[in-house]
Design a binder for these strands. Structure first.
Length: 271
DNA sequence: CGACAATGAAAAA
DNA sequence: TTTTCCTTGTCGC
């Protein structure tokens, strides 16, 4: 379930459960065993998120980081001590006297050095959830590009943390045709998109799910039946192909864009 | 029990 | 542009 909000929430949750302790680090699945052995006995001192990348900072003899990227399938599960016997897909388990956490199916779980961590930050664009983010840096790339805005929003070098749900929903909320080239996005449109993402994603961190429907458009307010989709939140277009648009009643469309399923309302999102 | 999809992205070609 | 990797839940037979 990982877009940027999930990763920032995980940074908070890992810190709450393990920061200031030296958890036992294991890799029941085996792919992280050597690094896990090196880390056991060292203290988790801080956690950090940038886009969809999670960093767990350990201080032993020097600074070391576990770099985690969940990819499409990765999942994290927290629980109270004592931990149950791990299943054979657990890539990484942390366990201290009060809690454990299991990581399964990540694209990346690797021990890295501070310079390697810096290199990752350097290839990522600004993250709406980070204080140090510069929205102008993102717009600089957007407004010089002939690529569609829907593809640019998915490009982590342009803006970090947006995924398939936020891209579809933020474009709907701003009535922007997903196929419009980035160069035709105005500065004020980008400003509105960015600040909307900041608010939506902060709420996503708080609630651990994506909700994008304005209060006046909720099923209750509109006299509609509640959503049926099981992805977790209330949305306008994501995974609503061929269903009626909440606002205009027209049919939501879907298409392949940037290797993912795009959803949009051609009537509401017309340039 | 196999096919398939799912909020992702790097490597290979 | 295509292939590859990672896991789990659901659906149809």
């Amino acid at each position: 379930m990982p877009e940027g909000h999930t990763i920032h929430r995980l940074a908070q949750d890992y810190a709450a459960a393990f920061q200031g302790t030296a958890p036992q680090v294991t890799s029941p699945q085996g792919k992280f065993t050597d690094s896990a052995a090196l880390l056991t006995g060292t203290e988790l001192t801080r956690t950090e998120a940038h886009g969809k990348h999670l960093f767990l900072g350990f201080s032993g003899s020097g600074d070391e980081w576990i770099h985690i990227h969940l990819g499409l399938f990765g999942k994290v599960n927290f629980g109270p001590a004592p931990p149950p016997p791990p299943t054979d897909t657990v890539r990484l388990r942390l366990a201290n006297t009060t809690a454990y956490v299991d990581l399964r199916g990540p694209t990346t779980c690797a021990l890295i050095t501070p310079p390697e961590k810096r290199a990752i930050h350097d290839r990522l664009g600004p993250d709406p959830l980070r204080e140090d983010a510069d929205p102008d840096a993102a717009y600089h790339r957007v407004h010089r590009s002939r690529t569609t805005i829907a593809a640019l929003l998915m490009d982590q070098k342009v803006i970090a943390g947006v995924g398939n749900v936020y891209r579809a929903e933020v474009l709907f909320r701003h009535r922007i045709d997903p196929y419009r080239p980035g160069r035709d996005i105005t500065a004020s449109e980008w400003d509105a998109i960015w600040h909307d993402l900041v608010e939506l994603m902060r709420e996503g961190v708080r609630n651990n799910r994506i909700d994008t429907v304005r209060p006046e458009h909720t099923p209750e307010a509109m006299g509609r039946p509640p959503r049926v989709d099981d992805h977790g939140g209330e949305v306008y277009v994501y995974r609503r192909a061929h269903l009626p648009c909440h606002l205009c009643g027209g049919e939501i469309r879907t298409a392949d864009l940037a290797a993912r399923n795009l959803f949009w309302c051609p009537a509401c999102q017309r340039d």
